[in-house]
């Protein structure tokens, strides 16, 4: 590991609130360690802004270990930046060069309105989950966990889908602002398991209807979402969602 320090220029989208117009502001930063994370670089910038009595840049983040899904950021044209299979909080400055200009934008989608600066409102994802992203069981009165054997391959594929962190990179990347990868991950996870199979068609129908209602676009199979997904959620889940959705329609 060779640690060094680099100088960079950060070009950031600043927007006071949902109603205001936003603009790009540029900030030079010197002596950033390549071992620091991208968000630690943002911390340094914010610390500097506070010292200068300016308002720091608002951005969402929480766990800083790539699992909570709260961080976002469109960095140099890529959701979660130039590295693959990482969230912004796991991105490190060693992926950037001395003298580079780094452009940082919020997720841009009609479904995710900007709240402030780089922070967006992703509550639409919660609403889609509330429409059907569950197995309808109450607490208590369920069978023993080993009463339902599940083939290991099915459990593993369900786990692949369940790894979705709900960050919204797929929507931000899609030219149609489609939420199909997000929706398909949940539909697919539960359709693969006997517990979820029972209401699979109904679930697909309700979640897709909610997604359409909230203004997310259609999937045109470009596969951009899969490339930018920090958890490597596969497009194959969209195919399974389409199958379940068709089933639901045929039954009607």
């Amino acid at each position: 590991m060779s640690s060094k320090n680099i100088n960079i220029t950060v070009k950031v989208w600043r927007q006071q609130d949902a109603k205001s117009k936003g603009i790009f502001e540029s900030y030079p930063l010197s002596n950033i360690s390549t071992d620091s994370s991208f968000l630690e670089m943002m911390d340094v910038l914010n610390e500097k802004l506070v010292t200068e009595n300016q308002e720091p840049i608002a951005f969402d983040h929480d766990c800083r270990e790539g699992i909570c899904g709260m961080c976002s950021l469109f960095i140099n044209g890529h959701a979660h930046g130039p590295d693959s299979l990482v969230t912004t909080c796991q991105l490190h400055m060693r992926k950037f060069n001395d003298g580079q200009t780094i452009t940082i934008e919020p997720w841009r989608s009609g479904g995710f309105p900007v709240i402030k600066d780089l922070m967006v409102d992703r509550s639409a994802f919660d609403k889609i989950m509330q429409a059907g992203g569950f197995v309808s069981v109450n607490t208590g009165g369920v069978p023993d966990a080993n009463a339902i054997p599940i083939a290991q391959a099915d459990a593993e594929e369900a786990m692949d889908a369940a790894a979705c962190i709900g960050c919204g990179a797929c929507v931000a990347t899609c030219k149609n602002s489609s939420a199909m990868l997000f929706v398909s991950a949940k539909v697919s996870q539960l359709a693969l398991l006997p517990q979820g199979k029972i209401e699979a068609a109904r679930r697909a129908k309700n979640m897709v209807a909610k997604m359409d209602e909230l203004g997310f676009g259609n999937c045109s199979n470009t596969g951009a979402c899969e490339v930018e997904c920090p958890k490597g959620i596969s497009l194959a889940h969209i195919a399974r969602l389409n199958r379940e959705f068709l089933c639901a329609k045929v039954k009607e």
Binding site: V135, A145, I148, A155, M159, L190, L193, Q195
Partner: peptide, 10 residues
């Protein structure tokens, strides 16, 4: 038991 019933992929 509860988690498995919810579809947690252990």
């Amino acid at each position: 038991d509860q988690s498995v019933a919810q579809g947690v992929p252990f």
